[in-house]
């Protein structure tokens, strides 16, 4: 049973009276990379947590396919992934525990996955001593290893240098090629143009635009989006 399309209508999230999402409408297909853009506090991280089943909306409708509860096959990488006080390999294998995979098989798959993200030579090192970029790649490996159908990434390259971000983007593209739907947030508009198939632009707890990436940057429909793009890309004014 497919979890797509994921459809939200009039979704609300109002924790103790403070409206974070106020009538969000969104439909996500099962293919490609959707990049969620929007200013700080727009509710992007909250949306990802709701899509992962970690937060329960206060109102509105949310369906994964025909299911009302968040199905299996959803994985999420947080902006600050937390690693166990253990070796890199142990952390990579962690996500397989709930899937009932035996220990030996977990380790074997984790090894193969570490190769793919370029961390095989760090397998025995402590995960908590990795650099920010390495830690992010480990978090991606940990999520990818569970073969999710939907992968949610919250600012996967925040605070990474360009080459670190480049490596993470390469991995994200590879995951996409394997047929996994990716929904990610970023404040890096260059990254959005490189990775996105479609852009979900949020402001004030609503989706203001949901269009193919080219269209969003060429002809933003709303005033907010135009200002947002200009604010984040001041150099574009010169062109």
């Amino acid at each position: 049973m497919s979890m797509f399309p994921i459809s939200a209508s009039d979704l609300r999230f109002v924790p103790n009276g403070h409206a974070v999402l106020q009538g969000l409408d969104l439909t996500l297909g099962g293919e490609g990379i959707s990049v969620v853009l929007g200013p700080n506090g727009a509710g992007k991280s909250v949306l990802l947590r709701i899509l992962c089943g970690l937060l329960v909306p206060s109102g509105g409708q949310l369906r994964w396919g025909v299911q009302q509860d968040c199905p299996a096959g959803v994985a999420m990488v947080f902006q600050q992934p937390i690693m166990l006080r253990a070796a890199v390999i142990e952390n990579a294998a962690l996500g397989l525990i709930p899937l009932g995979v035996g220990r030996a098989e977990r380790q074997a798959s984790a090894w193969a996955m570490l190769e793919r993200v370029g961390l095989a030579d760090r397998a025995k090192d402590s995960a908590r001593q990795l650099s920010g970029g390495e830690r992010q790649r480990l978090a991606l490996a940990r999520a990818w290893l569970t073969r999710p159908r939907l992968l949610l990434l919250d600012e996967p390259t925040a605070s990474l240098d360009p080459s670190g971000a480049e490596m993470v983007e390469r991995i994200i593209r590879e995951i996409r090629t394997e047929g996994c739907k990716i929904v990610m947030t970023t404040h890096n508009l260059g990254q959005a143009t490189r990775l996105a198939d479609d852009v979900v632009f949020m402001a004030n707890g609503r989706v203001r635009e949901h269009v193919p990436v080219g269209e969003f940057f060429r002809r933003p429909a709303s005033e907010e989006a135009r200002l947002f793009i200009q604010g984040e890309l001041p150099w574009q004014m010169a062109f």
């Binding site: 999420m76 992934p81 937390i82 525990i97």
Partner: peptide, 15 residues
């Protein structure tokens, strides 16, 4: 520290 990560990975309480 881990609650949210474990919830996202669908750990049950025993795990």
């Amino acid at each position: 520290e881990y609650a949210e990560e474990f919830a996202a990975m669908r750990f049950n309480w025993r795990q």
